[in-house]
Simulated assay, not measured.
Amino acid sequence: MKKYIAILCSLFSAQAMAQQGLTITGNFENLKDSKVYLVRRDKDKGLDTLNFTTSKNGSFVLKSRVTEPEPLYIFREGSPSFSYVFAENTNIEVSGNVDSMYVFKGIKVKGSPAHEQLMEFYKNVSEPFEREIMKAIEESREQGNAASVERLLMKTDEILSRRATAILKYLKTNPNQSNSLAYGIMNAYTNIGLEMSPASYNPVYEALSPSVKASVHGVKLRNLLTANMRTSPGVMAPDFTLPTANGKPVRLKDVVAKNKVVLLDFWASWCGPCRAENPNIVKAYEKYKDKGFAIISISLDTDRKKWLQAVEEDKVPWLQVSDLTQRAVVARDYGVRGIPHLVLIGQDGKVITSRNIRGEELHKKLESIFN
């Protein structure tokens, strides 16, 4: 009987918190009186403003409600700076200096267990391995040859494997899990542009509690794992057919059959890093196009005019395709979460690498293949 009473009390408490919603009280040094916005990133609406207020003497109060813990952002008027809070229906305090309105640069968040668990995960489990990987990448760039790229790939695989083991250990020793962990694990996979090893990370997913698996971010993590399994090195690349600007259908399988290596380049005219990377890809194309190197650029533009204008401005002479849908099915099939996103495919139709290699790393990888 006591057990059932405890369960009922827990349910009533959760329902009361959900009805109460969340209250974020902010106190920032040097914050001038200005409008402050509480924002959610919505896949359909983009940035969705949940509430706003005007700060007074560095303080403000924002209220809203979430269905389950989720990342929310606090923006101040006239500044790109923001505070990041993994919010739940509690009383949350955020504080710091206005010059560092970003959680990883000194913002303190209290009152959200989901946020606290996520920060603990980042600090003790994820970030140490990211620093290792960035150090390995820097060392490879300094050496500047194809052999160093191969050593880098082996080194990062080893680091990612150790990280997966560390994440698994953390989950097993922390049974009281928030769905923020699914969010943190998903970001750990994608922050540095390296693909996951499904063999390593499936056990991580299985170690999540049933409630976390069923959460929004748990489902997203499962979908991301599935997409990565479809595009892991050695796996047959998902075939697709997309139209050129003139409506001519281009099938991946047909392009692969005629070339030694095909690069899939997911990009868009509005993507600054994509446009900045295009001269580098042009350089690689000019060097290897006569050796069996082909490129298919898949634009996530929705505006035909802007897409074609960017193609002309950047002088990219290879195949350009798009269905003018930002959330294209092919992007989902290749696990694209951000652009630019590059995938190399061999003549056998299998993925060579889905690592998001750019700059000199792309040239080094192509050199190791063609030379």
Rank of each mutant, 00 (worst) to 15 (best):
Val216Gly: 06
Gly46Tyr: 07
Glu29Met: 07
Cys9Phe: 12
Thr244His: 07
Val261Asn: 02
Glu77Ile: 04
Ile133Trp: 00
Phe240Gly: 05
Arg141Asn: 10
Asn259Gly: 00
Leu264Arg: 03
Lys220Glu: 15
Lys283Asp: 08
Leu22His: 09
Val262Glu: 02
Pro233Asp: 09
Asn30Trp: 09
Pro175Val: 03
Ser161Trp: 02
Asp44Asn: 13
Lys364Met: 15
Ala257Gly: 06
Ala14Cys: 12
Lys169Ala: 06
Lys248Tyr: 10
Lys110Leu: 13
Pro279Asp: 00
Tyr285Glu: 05
Asn356Val: 03
Gly247His: 13
Glu29Trp: 06
Glu367Val: 00
Thr325His: 04
Arg163Pro: 03
Ile167Val: 15
Leu252His: 03
Val39Lys: 01
Tyr84Asn: 13
Leu160Met: 14
Lys172Ala: 04
Ile7Asn: 02
Ile74Met: 10
Pro198Ala: 10
Asn51Ala: 15
Val61Thr: 15
Ser55Tyr: 10
Thr241Tyr: 11
Lys248Gln: 14
Arg163Gly: 02
Asn202Phe: 10
Leu8Pro: 00
Arg131Ile: 00
Lys258Asp: 12
Val94His: 11
Met229Phe: 07
Gln309Pro: 03
Ser211Thr: 14
Glu142His: 03
Ile133Gln: 01
Tyr288Ser: 00
Val85Ser: 11
Asn30Lys: 15
Thr231Trp: 04
Thr190Tyr: 08
Ile185His: 06
Ser269Trp: 09
Asp333Cys: 06
Leu324Cys: 09
Ala328Glu: 03
Met236Arg: 06
Ser10Asp: 08
Lys305Ala: 14
Thr90Trp: 13
Tyr288Arg: 01
Lys315Tyr: 11
Arg162Pro: 03
Leu319Gly: 00
Leu62Tyr: 04
Ile107Ala: 12
Trp307Arg: 01
Leu118Gln: 13
Thr49Lys: 12
Val261Ile: 13
Asn145Val: 07
Leu344Asn: 03
Asp333Tyr: 11
Met1Gly: 10
Ile137Ser: 06
Leu362Ile: 09
Lys56Phe: 07
Thr226Tyr: 10
Ile281Cys: 02
Pro80Thr: 04
Lys105Glu: 15
Asn27Ile: 08
Cys271Met: 03
Ile298Asn: 05
His115Thr: 06
Lys364Gln: 14
Pro69Ile: 08
Arg327Lys: 12
Ile7Lys: 11
Lys108Asn: 15
Thr244Gly: 04
Asn51Ile: 03
Lys220Ser: 12
Thr302His: 00
Asn280Lys: 04
Ala114Leu: 04
Leu362Phe: 07
Lys213Cys: 09
Asn97Leu: 09
Cys9Leu: 13
Tyr122Arg: 08
Pro71Cys: 12
Val204Ser: 04
Lys172Cys: 05
Phe82Ala: 08
